[in-house]
């Protein structure tokens, strides 16, 4: 199902949580809402779910205006950050809840519900745990129950709020793949909220990046990483060295650091260079860096250093290219690519 969000505003008291947000979500895609805390991403998710209602704007499911339809009538699956399982019900009862509360005419028969519960517990790989209580499960298992429960009502869209936020790192990684697998198996349109860019880039078909209640950019993981639309996106997605300086005649200069800035108008500007976009340069090219620290992370070597005017800089190389580099030595670096944004 497609979802259209049109110029949605939402304030909490005087605090604007969403500021004229528009977003189109495609049928069957897995979309990440990525942003720092306070960026409005959870509020946007809750507006889509009908747990929060916008002050202005519209929410459409296909062509249906659901802006002020309450959550119970929307048929969305929502997975809460703390899972929000019903503690007094068994796992099976939790999963069956959405079917059990239907009006008699629409409610499947008991055997049908039981079969659906079994099928879903199988899908999330919790077969046989239906009679346990949530308190008897691990965090990762609770997460899967929450997912199965949300899927039980055959939701038109699946919404997940920081789905992996409460889990430790290893469980998080395997559940990420799991969510991708389940999404591909069910084909349901899925939106999840995260503040973890790695999670968003790895998992999502497209990423919407929010900042201060506005959408900064929507695009595939590659697009937002390689062609950031704003300084914020550039700084938030992936690692980047940041320089303040001026553009004159398609050249950006910040002290000794000089970068190509094709098509950027003259004046004050901010430039971003990713660590892997820096390379060792011939004498006479690039700029000089003094090495403060040298670390090795698997096949990659990372240099932390300073330019002649004291700006901090980080660069990463294949380890084999680092022969002869030592702490306190100086070397020349040049950027093969940079993102330069004129200051507003």
């Amino acid at each position: 199902m497609t979802i259209s969000i049109r110029s949605v505003d939402k304030r909490f008291g005087r605090y604007p949580a969403l500021n004229s947000v528009s977003l189109d979500i495609r049928d069957g895609e897995l979309l990440a809402l990525l942003g720092p805390s306070g960026s409005g991403k959870t509020t946007l998710l809750r507006v889509i779910a009908g747990l929060e209602f916008p002050d202005r704007g519209q929410v459409l499911f296909e062509d249906e205006d659901v802006t002020y339809l309450n959550a119970a009538a929307r048929r969305v699956g929502f997975v809460f950050q703390q899972y929000a399982l019903f503690k007094h019900m068994t796992v099976a009862k939790n999963v069956a809840f959405g079917l059990d509360v239907r009006k008699r005419r629409e409610r499947p028969s008991r055997p049908e519900i039981a079969a659906r519960v079994d099928e879903l517990l199988g899908l999330v790989e919790l077969g046989g745990l239906g009679r346990r209580f949530p308190s008897q499960l691990s965090g990762g298992q609770r997460q899967r129950v929450a997912l199965a429960r949300a899927l039980a009502v055959s939701p038109r869209v699946l919404l997940l709020d920081e789905p992996f936020g409460a889990l430790d790192a290893t469980v998080r990684k395997s559940l990420r793949r799991e969510l991708r697998r389940i999404h591909d198996a069910t084909g349901v349109t899925t939106i999840f909220v995260t503040h973890d860019q790695e999670e968003a880039l790895e998992l999502a078909d497209r990423v919407a990046i929010l900042n201060a209640g506005r959408i900064e950019q929507v695009g595939t993981p590659d697009e937002v990483h390689d062609r950031p639309a704003s300084p914020f996106v550039c700084g938030f997605v992936g690692e980047a060295n940041r320089f303040e300086g001026r553009v004159e005649g398609a050249r950006f200069a910040s002290g000794p650091v000089v970068l190509a800035a094709e098509g950027v108008r003259d004046g004050a500007a901010t430039a971003f260079v990713r660590p892997h976009q820096l390379a060792l340069a011939e004498p006479g090219r690039g700029f000089e860096v003094t090495v403060d620290r040298l670390t090795v992370q698997g096949p990659v070597g990372v240099i932390e250093g300073r330019t002649a005017d004291g700006q901090r800089i980080e660069a990463s190389f294949a380890r084999k290219d680092l022969g002869g580099v030592e702490v306190r030595s100086t070397l020349r670096l040049a950027a093969d690519h940079a993102h330069v944004f004129p200051d507003a």
Binding site: L51, A73, R74, F78, L85, F86, R149, V153
Partner: peptide
């Protein structure tokens, strides 16, 4: 927690159902 009630609502439960169940 409010999220438990919200979870029930998103699963289609009406207010009385939420209170009762």
């Amino acid at each position: 927690a409010a999220d438990v009630e919200e979870a029930a609502a998103s699963l289609g439960a009406g207010r009385l159902s939420i209170i009762g169940r």
